[in-house]
Every structure is written in structure tokens, then in C-alpha cells.
Simulated assay, not measured.
Amino acid sequence: MNIINITHTEAFNNITKLLARFALAALFILTGLSKVEFYYATAQYMATMGVPGVLLPLVIALEVIGGAMVVLGLLTHLTALAFAIFSIVSALLFHFDLAEQTQFLMFYKNIAIAGGFLALAASGAGKYSLDQLLLKDRS
């Protein structure tokens, strides 16, 4: 069996898009819920990094609601683009101390996540999505 032939099938593309959506969204849903649990500590941390804590509800909403939208494949092009921008901005604001190894790794983790979301924004959610069901998005 030729692996190249398998990876060019519609079924493979749709299943990998579904798995990618789950993998990318899981991180944000879990961290969004964690921000709810540790709300005041998170707001304080944001403030120490120069980001107003009053933005925290918007961050939580993006992570939890936006993450659910990615899992469901709802408005995927737009939501994935928003997450790509969010990941890059977060990298720049919170992890730009590239001389420190942990921050260096966290910075490039965010950049890699942004790359995954950009690929999803470009390719769409696939067949197993609300975009396909409601919007007839054939991507």
C-alpha cells in the first residue's frame, strides 16, 4: 500500500482536519477553563506583563467559546485566523524573553500553534464540521 495514495484521499483529509481541530482546540479550552479557576492570579500575571486584567474575560471567551467553535468546525476560517493572531500576540507579550530557555520554547510553541491555525484557516474544517453542514463549505 502506497502511503502517498492514502494521504491524497478525501477521507484522509477530512479525518486529519477533524483531528487537527480537536488537538488545537483542546489546549485553548483547557487553558481557558484554568483561567476561570485561577481568575485573580491570571489577571495579576497579565497586569505584571503590561496587559490590563480587564481583558481577561475576553481572553477566556476566545479560548473557551472559540475553542468549542474550532472543535465543532463552526466559522472555522475566521476562528482559526483569530487564534493564529492571538497565539502570535501572546508569544510577543508573554514569552519574548528569548534568552531564557523556557520562554524561548514557549515563544516558538505559540508560533507553531499559529502555524497550525493558519493551515486550518486556509484549508477549512472539512466534511465533519458545522461549516459543511450549515454553510456548505466544501474546503
Rank of each mutant, 00 (worst) to 15 (best):
G116L: 02
L118E: 00
A91L: 08
F107H: 13
F86R: 10
I85E: 03
V64I: 15
Q103Y: 09
D97Y: 05
L105V: 08
L74N: 04
V71I: 15
K109H: 08
F96C: 13
L93E: 14
L75C: 08
M106Q: 12
T79R: 08
Q101G: 05
A114W: 07
L98H: 06
H95R: 06
L118G: 06
L92Q: 07
H77L: 02
A68Y: 03
I88V: 15
A99R: 10
I85W: 02
A99F: 12
G73V: 08
I88G: 11
Y108D: 04
Q101A: 14
E63G: 08
G115H: 01
Q101F: 12
V70W: 00
V89W: 06
G67A: 07
L118W: 04
A91H: 06
N110I: 04
I60P: 10
A119Q: 13
L72S: 08
A112K: 03
A99I: 11
L92I: 05
A119V: 15
I113L: 15
A119S: 15
E63V: 08
A61W: 04
H77E: 01
V89I: 13
L78V: 13
Q101L: 15
L78I: 13
I111H: 12
A68G: 14
A80Y: 00
M106N: 11
I65M: 03
A82N: 04
H95A: 01
Q103R: 14
F104E: 01
D97C: 04
G73P: 07
F107W: 14
A61H: 03
L78M: 12
A114C: 13
L98V: 12
F83S: 10
I65W: 00
L75A: 13
G115M: 04
I65H: 01
S90M: 05
V89D: 04
A114I: 11
A68W: 02
F104V: 05
A112C: 07
F107N: 09
I60M: 13
F104G: 02
G115Q: 03
Y108V: 08
V70Q: 02
T79N: 10
G66W: 05
E63H: 14
A119C: 15
E63W: 10
T79V: 15
V71L: 05
L98D: 07
G115D: 00
F94C: 02
A119N: 14
L98I: 14
L93S: 11
L105R: 08
S90P: 01
I111V: 15
I111A: 12
E63Y: 09
A84L: 04
F117G: 07
E100K: 14
L75M: 09
A61F: 12
V70G: 02
K109F: 04
E63N: 15
V71H: 02
G66P: 08
F96A: 14
Q103S: 13
L92E: 08
L98M: 10
V64L: 06
M69W: 05
V71W: 03
G66A: 10
L72Q: 02
V89M: 11
K109D: 00
F96N: 15
L75T: 07
I88D: 10
A61V: 11
G73F: 05
A80R: 07
G66S: 09
A119I: 14
L118Q: 09
